[in-house]
Write a protein that binds this DNA or RNA. Structure first.
Length: 883
RNA sequence: GGGCAAUUAGCUCAGUUGGUUAGAGCGCUGCAUUCACAUUGCAGAGGUCACUGGUUCAAAUCCAGUAUUGCCCACCA
C-alpha cells in the first residue's frame, strides 16, 4: 500500500460537506437499509420562527451521538427530522416584520388568505435554512421521512385526534374565562404564560355607604362586574352576612352582590373578604360555577372586552375607557365618596403572554377545551390518570409502558404539574395553524369533516400548536394509518429535550400517545439544560449575545463544536458556552488528525481490520496500550449506553492524548527502528487507530470519517460495526509495569527540568534496583539519555542527583552541575511529603476498627503503599546523610 | 408561600452505587522550534471540595441544618 500524503492540519471545510453528501447518498441514514432491533429518536422539531441557535446544535449533537452509537451497534436506527410551524410565535413574528415595514394592521390589511400566504413564504424560507443547518451539524437523520407539523399528514392526524376526543366527550365548546392577549387578539394556554413580578396598589374600599364591610382589590375597575363577595366559611366576622344579597350602587352602577362562603378565600389577606368578579378572574369564575352548580346563579358581568376596553355593561361613565383609565376614575369616585379606606403598594405576580408580551386579561369567551379530568368512555380513567400512570406504574400498570426521565428529579415536577392541570384551551384566534375541524350552519354543528351541501362555515379559529406537536412521535410514523413504521418504531426508544418544554411538550406527547395509541411516546427522556453565554446569561436577541452555530462550524469544525457542547455537561443542568472551549476542542480534533497522519504516513502495510488475536504484542508498551484500549471500549460503551456523554468523551480524550499520543506513539518510534519489532508495532498502531476512530465517531463523525477514507476508501465508518472488546482480558501486569515506566521517565525528566540541564545534553542515568531493564531503549529515547544502566546499589562517588520512585532510585549523573544546597532543599521537601503520607497511613492502619471493618483489598493496598513509602523515605534519608 | 438545583484549582466544569495522596480543559510559571502535530512537547505551581453538625473504620460523595446564587411552581384578590 502506498504511503499517504496527508495535509498537516485538518481543514474541516474541505471535508464536511462532501462527507455529509456521501453519507446521505449511502442510504445508511434510512433504517430501511439497516437491520436489527429498531432504535428510534424523533427530533424535536425546531420552530420555523427563525434559524437554529446553539441550543439546537446541542440537541443535534446529543441526538446524533446517540443514534450513531446505536447504529454502529447494529440497531435499525431511525432519527426522524422535522420542523414545527409554531403557530402563534410564527404569526407574531411575521406580523412584527410587516409592522416594521409600515403595515400597521397586517390582519386587517391583508385578510386571512393573503396573510397566511405571507407567513407560509416566511416559514418555508426558515425551514429550508433550518434543514441545511441540521446537515451542517452532521446529524444523521433519515431525510426520506422528513416531517412538518403543518403538512397534509399531520393535518390528518390532528383532525382525527380532535374528532375522536370530541366523540369521546373530552373536547367541548364552552364559555369560560380565558387568558386573553389584547395585543395579540388571541387566547393563551396556562402553560404559555410567563409570570413577572410587578408592583401594584392594593385598594381597600366599600362598594357604597350601605355595604357593611370593606374588601380589597388591585383592580378596582373590574369591581364594576362584581356579582358576589366571598368570605371564608369559618370567618366569624362575616358569618352573619353569608347568604344575604346586597343591592349596592358602585360608582353609579347598580350591583347585586351575593355574600358567599368559599374555602379558597384567605381570611388573613386584605380584609378577608373578596369581591367576586366571575368574568375577569379564573378563580372567581370557579366560584361562580360552584355556586351555580349548587343552585345559586350569582351571574356574570363582563366589563372588559376583547379590545381591552370597558364594555357597555361597565356603565355609561366607563364604557370605552381602557382599564387603566377606568381604574383611575373608579378610585377617584371612591375617594370622593369617602369609600376608599386605604391604599398601599404590594408585590404582584402577573401572567404575560410569552409571545405577545402583554399582561393577559381574564375574559370570558366561548372556546374549545380539552377536559383532562373527565373519564374516557369505556376506560374508567381520565387523560390525567393516563398521564400520571405513564410515569409511575406504566400505562395500564405495564412496566414496559413506563417513561423514564433522566435526571429523575424531573419526574416529580411532571407529576406535580399533572395534578394541577386544568382544562386545556385549544382554540387560537390566529390564522397560522391547523383549522379547527368544525363546521357550522345556523344551529347545526359538524365535527370532523366538512359536510356535503351549501352554507357550511368552518370555525374561524386554529388549534394550539402543541395539539399537533403532541402527536409528533406517531403522526410522523403514519398514524392514523396502521403502518409498518408505527409497529417498528413506536414507542420511540429515546428522546431528548430541554427542561423548558417539559410541561408544554413532554406532557402533551404522553397525553396524545396514551390516548390515541394506548402507548407511551418514548421509553426514555434525556433532559438537557440551557446554554448560556460565558457570563452565565441567557442568549437573547435583546442582549445581542447570540452566537451563530454555523459561524462556529465554519471557523473551527462541526466536530469541535459538537465536542465542546457535549463535554463537561451533565443532564438537566445549564452550561456555559465560550469560544475558548471550541478552540480547545479543535486542538483535540487536530491532534487526532495528526496521530492518524503519523501512523498512516509511516506504516508500510495498512493491514486494517486485523483481529486482536492476529497481533503479536511483544513489549510492555504494546500490551499496555491494548489493555488500555479494552478498558476504553468498556468505559465508552457503558457511558454512551446510558447517555453519559461527558464521561465518554473524557475517557476518549484521555486515551487519545495522554495515553496513545504522549506515550505509545513515542515508544512506537523506538520499536519501529528495530527490524524485529517494527512489523508488530505497525500492526498495533493501525489496530489501535482504527478502533479509536470508531469509538470517536459518534461524537466527532466528520474528522473520523475523513481519516477513515485514507484507511478504507470503500467503506463508511458510520456504517462500521462497533468493535466490542470487553471480552478480552486486561493485562494488569503490563499496566502496572507501564505505570512504573512512566514514573521513572517523569522522574528523570523532572530532574532534568529542576537542574535546568540543557535539553540537547545527553545525560547518564543509573537506575538502582529497578525492574525495567527491558525498557532501556524506551527510557533512553523518552528522556534523552545517552545511557541508562542498572545497578544493585547506589553509587557512592561522583557528582549526581537522584530521586526515588516506587521501583527504586533514579540517579542522574551531572558532572559539575550539582548544587548541594538546592539538592538538600529538594530532598528535604520530598522527605516531608513522604513522612506526612506515611503518618496518615500509619494512623489509619493502627486503627483497629479500620483494619477489622474495611474490605481487605482497601487495607491491603494501604499496607503496600505504606511499605513503598517507607522504602522511599529511607532512601531519601540516606541521600541526605550522604550530602 | 412551596419546590428544585448549584456551591470542588485564577476561570469553566467533571467526579457512576462512600474507599489509595480529589481530576480535566483553559489560564499561569520555567524550558524546548526543522524529528505526526507550536492547533506542539516536557516539567511545575495552584484546592481546609460554601459553612456547621451528624452517620461511618472511612464523607466532595449519605443525612440534617445554615448561607449565597439561580430556576420552577402557586388562585393573597
Amino acid at each position: 500500500m502506498q504511503k499517504k500524503e496527508i495535509p498537516k492540519a485538518y481543514e474541516a471545510r474541505n471535508y464536511e460537506d462532501t462527507i455529509y453528501a456521501a453519507w446521505e447518498e449511502s442510504g445508511f441514514f434510512n433504517p430501511d437499509n439497516l437491520s436489527g432491533e429498531p432504535f428510534s429518536i424523533m427530533m424535536p422539531p425546531p420552530n420555523v420562527t427563525g434559524v437554529l441557535h446553539l441550543g439546537h446544535a446541542l440537541e443535534n449533537t446529543i441526538m446524533d451521538s446517540m443514534i450513531r452509537y446505536q447504529r454502529m451497534h447494529g440497531r435499525k436506527a431511525l432519527l426522524l427530522p422535522g420542523t414545527d410551524h409554531a403557530a402563534v410565535p410564527t404569526q407574531a413574528k411575521v406580523e412584527k416584520l410587516l409592522m416594521e415595514e409600515g403595515i400597521a394592521f397586517p390582519r386587517q390589511e391583508f385578510g386571512r388568505e393573503k396573510l397566511v400566504e405571507r407567513i407560509r413564504t416566511f416559514a418555508d424560507a426558515s425551514r429550508a435554512t433550518i434543514l441545511s443547518q441540521i446537515k451542517k451539524m452532521g446529524t444523521s437523520c433519515d431525510w426520506s421521512r422528513l416531517a412538518y407539523t403543518f403538512d397534509e399528514n399531520r393535518n390528518r392526524a390532528v383532525n382525527e385526534l380532535f374528532t375522536r376526543m370530541y366523540n369521546d366527550g373530552l373536547i367541548y365548546r364552552g364559555y369560560r374565562v380565558v387568558n386573553w392577549s389584547v395585543k395579540g387578539q388571541c387566547t393563551c394556554s396556562d402553560d404559555e404564560l410567563a409570570y413577572v413580578d410587578r408592583k401594584a396598589k392594593l385598594y381597600t374600599f366599600k362598594y357604597d355607604a350601605q355595604f357593611p364591610f370593606t374588601i380589597a382589590t388591585t383592580r378596582p375597575e373590574t369591581k364594576l362586574g362584581d356579582t358576589a363577595v366571598a368570605v371564608h366559611p369559618s370567618d366569624e366576622r362575616y358569618a352573619q352576612f353569608v347568604g344575604q344579597v346586597f343591592e349596592v350602587d358602585f360608582c353609579g352602577n347598580p350591583l347585586r352582590l351575593h355574600v358567599i362562603a368559599d374555602e379558597g378565600v384567605d381570611p388573613e389577606f386584605g380584609t378577608g373578604a373578596l369581591g367576586v368578579t366571575p368574568a375577569h378572574s379564573a378563580i372567581d369564575f370557579v366560584m361562580y360555577e360552584k355556586q351555580k352548580a349548587a343552585g345559586n346563579d350569582i351571574g356574570i358581568i363582563p366589563v372588559i372586552g376583547s379590545d381591552g376596553k370597558m364594555t357597555t355593561q361597565a356603565g355609561q361613565e366607563f364604557e370605552g375607557l381602557t382599564s387603566e383609565e377606568a381604574r383611575e376614575k373608579v378610585v377617584a369616585r371612591l375617594r370622593e365618596a369617602g369609600l376608599l379606606v386605604s391604599e398601599h403598594e404590594i408585590e404582584q405576580n402577573v401572567g404575560t403572554s410569552d409571545r405577545f408580551g402583554d399582561v393577559v386579561e381574564a375574559i370570558p369567551m366561548t372556546q374549545w377545551w380539552l377536559d383532562v379530568q373527565k373519564e374516557i368512555p369505556g376506560k374508567g380513567k381520565s387523560l390525567r390518570d393516563l398521564m400520571r400512570e405513564a410515569l409511575t406504574i406504566g400505562l395500564h400498570g405495564d412496566e414496559k409502558q413506563k417513561v423514564t426521565i433522566n435526571p429523575e428529579r424531573f419526574t416529580k415536577l411532571y407529576l406535580d404539574r399533572v395534578e394541577q392541570l386544568r382544562d386545556w384551551c385549544l382554540s387560537r384566534q390566529i390564522w397560522w395553524g391547523h383549522r379547527i375541524p368544525v363546521w357550522y350552519k345556523g344551529e347545526e354543528m359538524v365535527v370532523g369533516q366538512e359536510p356535503e351541501g351549501e352554507g357550511w362555515v368552518q370555525d374561524e379559529d386554529t388549534l394550539d400548536t402543541w395539539f399537533s406537536s403532541g402527536s409528533w412521535t406517531f403522526s410522523t410514523l403514519g398514524w392514523p394509518d396502521d403502518t409498518q413504521d408505527l409497529k417498528h418504531f413506536h414507542p420511540t426508544t429515546w428522546m431528548q429535550m430541554g427542561y423548558e418544554i417539559l410541561y408544554l411538550w413532554l406532557m402533551r406527547m404522553v397525553l396524545m400517545s396514551a390516548y390515541a395509541l394506548k402507548e407511551i411516546p418514548f421509553k426514555e427522556v434525556y433532559i438537557h439544560g440551557m446554554l448560556r453565554d460565558k457570563d452565565g446569561q441567557k442568549f437573547s436577541k435583546s442582549l445581542g449575545n447570540g452566537i451563530d452555530p454555523i459561524e462556529v462550524i465554519e471557523k473551527y469544525s462541526a466536530d469541535a463544536l459538537r465536542f465542546s457542547l457535549i463535554t463537561g455537561v451533565t443532564p438537566g443542568n445549564d452550561s456555559r458556552f465560550y469560544e475558548e472551549k471550541v478552540e480547545a476542542a479543535q486542538r483535540l480534533v487536530n491532534k487526532l488528525w495528526n496521530i492518524s497522519r503519523f501512523i498512516l504516513s509511516s506504516v508500510d502495510e495498512m493491514n486494517h481490520g486485523a483481529a486482536f488475536s492476529e497481533l503479536s504484542p511483544s513489549s510492555m508498551a504494546d500490551k499496555w496500550i491494548l489493555s488500555q484500549l479494552v478498558r476504553l471500549e468498556e468505559d465508552v460503551s457503558s457511558h454512551m449506553q446510558v447517555a453519559e456523554f461527558s464521561q465518554a468523551t473524557e475517557k476518549l480524550r484521555e486515551f487519545t492524548w495522554s495515553k496513545f499520543a504522549d506515550w505509545y506513539l513515542e515508544i512506537a518510534k523506538v520499536q519501529r527502528q528495530n527490524e524485529t519489532t517494527k512489523a508488530s508495532t505497525d500492526a498495533i498502531l493501525v489496530y489501535v487507530l482504527e478502533h479509536l476512530l470508531t469509538y470517536w465517531h459518534p461524537i466527532m463523525p466528520f474528522v473520523t470519517e475523513a481519516i477513515w477514507k485514507y484507511i478504507e476508501p470503500e467503506e463508511f465508518l458510520m456504517a462500521h460495526t462497533w468493535p466490542v472488546m470487553r471480552q478480552i482480558d486486561l493485562d494488569l501486569e503490563a499496566e502496572h509495569q507501564m505505570d512504573r515506566l512512566q514514573e521513572v521517565v517523569s522522574t528523570i525528566r523532572n530532574l532534568r527540568s529542576e537542574y535546568q540541564i540543557d535539553p540537547k545534553k545527553k545525560i547518564t542515568v543509573v537506575l538502582v534496583g529497578s525492574q525495567l531493564e527491558s525498557e532501556q531503549s524506551a527510557i533512553e529515547f523518552l528522556t534523552g539519555a545517552q545511557s541508562c544502566t542498572w545497578v544493585k546499589e547506589a553509587p557512592q562517588e561522583g557528582e549526581s542527583v537522584s530521586a526515588v520512585t516506587s521501583v527504586g532510585q533514579v540517579v542522574v549523573s551531572l558532572e559539575g552541575l550539582v548544587d548541594k544546597d538546592k539538592e538538600r532543599a529538594r530532598l528535604e521537601k520530598e522527605r516531608d511529603e513522604v513522612m506526612g503520607y506515611i503518618k496518615s497511613l500509619t494512623d489509619k492502619l493502627a486503627n483497629e476498627a479500620f483494619t477489622s471493618k474495611a474490605p481487605e483489598q482497601v487495607v491491603g493496598v494501604m499496607r503496600t503503599n505504606k511499605e513503598e513509602a517507607e522504602q522511599r523515605l529511607s532512601v531519601i534519608q540516606e541521600q541526605l546523610t550522604a550530602l
